[in-house]
Design a binder for these strands. Structure first.
Lengths: 220, 220
DNA sequence: TAGATTGTTAATCGATTAACAATC
DNA sequence: TAGATTGTTAATCGATTAACAATC
């Protein structure tokens, strides 16, 4: 167990480990080695061991990791041994999709409130949750102990919404809008903008411009 | 201009630059410095200059970058000076949301085909595109010159769909399903799984378990 | 015991940042 | 000219991987 500062790269791998461990658990596999984990997750086994060792000695030399125990530990590390309440701001298509998805409920994360700015949507329901006007955000976030906000409003409104979330004392934001949000350092923001993801993929399409008149690749 | 291998970190920043440059262009700003870009995008100016310099000498010393010219160049680098056809596999909630979103059309990326496995959905329409059975995937991908696939099917089917895409000669995959896909090295995969994003955010919620009985923070 | 696998240190690799000459 | 800003090299920082003693 160290008390070094943990990098975001490490933190982002923990849910990936957890997801696969849950699958192993469902399949009633009781033990797993960093080797096997690495193979399945396309990661270096040493990296996995190192990641886990930041938080404690969870494995057993010569044996590996106990699946159930490791699940429990990673959940604790991620604060997912308690329910984390989440707000969704923006009841458009994407917002609907995310809230219906609710796969993360079993991971103790739950969308408990939905907000939208357009009067037409207020009072409607998404996934059985009533859509509230954005003016209610501050009050609801405080009353319901909401810790994370998911922003699915258009880019032009995203910063405004983020400001409101911050003012209401939110701890972290998942931002689907294609903008860089400015928030105080103590609020964590993760960008989840798939348009930039998609555009960066286009770069890797060779045989496009770069190699058009040049087909010396091992064809087919 | 170098011919070093460009890292994915660099490639993923290009769309972010492009997005902001487009905004500047809309506002009729004609020139921008790495300093200003860095400020707006929360990046180090030296990093921005270095990123761009991998691909050419786009700036002018003492002046900065011409917005219109840089937009053109980045579009070329990303292969977005031509239309890139995209297929969407999985016509569920999330798939609908993504296709309706179609903000990327202006960036020359377009969803031109949608597939689903459930018979009930076949023949229906999403965003004016007819939903095809998954059996048509190979033929349609080839006929329509589809280069990128977006996977929005459940995790259990994602690998199967990826295999079909690869067999049909796709170049890159954006994977929304919460699984690690195994594909040949020449096919690029970006993970776009927001549940892991969300779970990693929970880590940063202090005042949760770790600091429960300890409220010495500068309150309010 | 012999074989397997962890936790951890040291080595390597890669990405970010600082600094500055060149030049608009 | 003086001020600004690029492109690029060198310095720094951080993350990944290899290697291995400890030990189940």
């Amino acid at each position: 167990m160290k008390s070094e500062k943990i990098s975001d790269a490490v933190v982002r791998r923990l849910p990936v480990y957890l997801r696969f461990l849950n699958e192993l658990s469902r399949r009633e596999v009781s033990t797993v080695s960093s080797q096997e984990l690495g193979q399945k997750l396309d990661l270096n086994p040493a990296q996995i061991r190192k990641d886990l060792a930041y938080f404690g000695d969870f494995g057993r030399k010569g044996i590996g990791y106990d699946v159930a125990y490791l699940i429990e530990k990673i959940q604790q590390i991620l604060n997912l041994d308690q329910q984390i309440n989440v707000a969704l701001i923006g009841a458009g298509n994407l917002g609907q999709a995310l809230s219906n998805y609710n796969a993360y409920v079993k991971d103790n994360m739950k969308i408990v409130a939905v907000f939208d700015a357009s009067p037409g949507k207020i009072g409607g329901k998404i996934n059985n949750i009533e859509i509230q006007p954005i003016e209610m955000l501050d009050e609801t976030v405080r009353n319901m102990n909401i810790r994370i906000g998911i922003i699915t409003v258009p880019a032009a409104e995203a910063q405004h919404v983020a400001d409101k979330l911050v003012a209401a004392g939110i701890g972290a934001i998942l931002n689907f809008a294609p903008t860089i949000l400015k928030v105080p350092a103590e609020v964590r923001v993760h960008a989840a903008d798939f348009t930039t993801d998609l555009m960066s993929l286009a770069y890797y399409l060779d045989g496009g411009k770069e190699m058009k008149d040049h087909d010396s690749k091992m064809a087919d």
